[in-house]
Design a protein around this nucleic acid. Sequence first.
DNA 1: AGCTTTTATCGTATATTGACGATTAACGAT
DNA 2: ATCGTTAATCGTCAATATACGATAAAAGCT
Lengths: 108, 108
Amino acid sequence: MKTVAPARRKLHHVSAPGIVRADEHTARLAKALGHPARVAIVRMLVRRGECVCGAIVEGLPLSQATVSQHLKVLKEAGLIHGEIDGPRVCYCINPEAVNRLKSLLDQL
Amino acid sequence: MKTVAPARRKLHHVSAPGIVRADEHTARLAKALGHPARVAIVRMLVRRGECVCGAIVEGLPLSQATVSQHLKVLKEAGLIHGEIDGPRVCYCINPEAVNRLKSLLDQL
DNA sequence: AGCTTTTATCGTATATTGACGATTAACGAT
DNA sequence: ATCGTTAATCGTCAATATACGATAAAAGCT
């Protein structure tokens, strides 16, 4: 007669957490900041509070298309968000995401 | 008679700092953490203080070659360093680099 | 010297990123 | 309705990143 296997629980003992959810989260945010242009954009938004896309393009030695791509990356990572304002788009920081990254790094 | 042009100084007025050195530094560190496996490695090293390469490989669902590459990336970014210990290599965190990233993010 | 263990590197294949010009889409103004 | 402005997207190219098996390199052991 086989012993009844206990319901599978959390396996606390198997030591190897390997790559956990938080790691992926941290990596996603870090990766978004993994390009100088994107760091510069974030810095600009922190300094000026908010910023129209065109102003960001002017501040960088990159084409409008390239800057737009970088903005998309930052937006998809949740680090910034932009809202349409007439014919232009106004971007600003998402402070929660920035703080989340900071606290993830603190726990590390 | 032409006026003598003043020696070219720092051009403080041209507003556009664009991408500065610190941005590149921040990006380099952030990029190194821009992969879940590398975050997991860093976390492991922080928790256990130091770690032989083989133990890191065991803890991750990746081949030895791949892990070795990730270690190289972290090493080149200065986030970790490894010293040879007999036939194996012992890795540990470089706390200065981690703190540098944290403070760069704080200034942002 | 030969063998084992451990880690780095090579070679390679695929995927993603970064950059740009050109085009499209959205909106205000004329 | 057309025009000009602003920003996103498309298409494309070169470069980098990711992953792996295979091989090399280094060190200890017999």
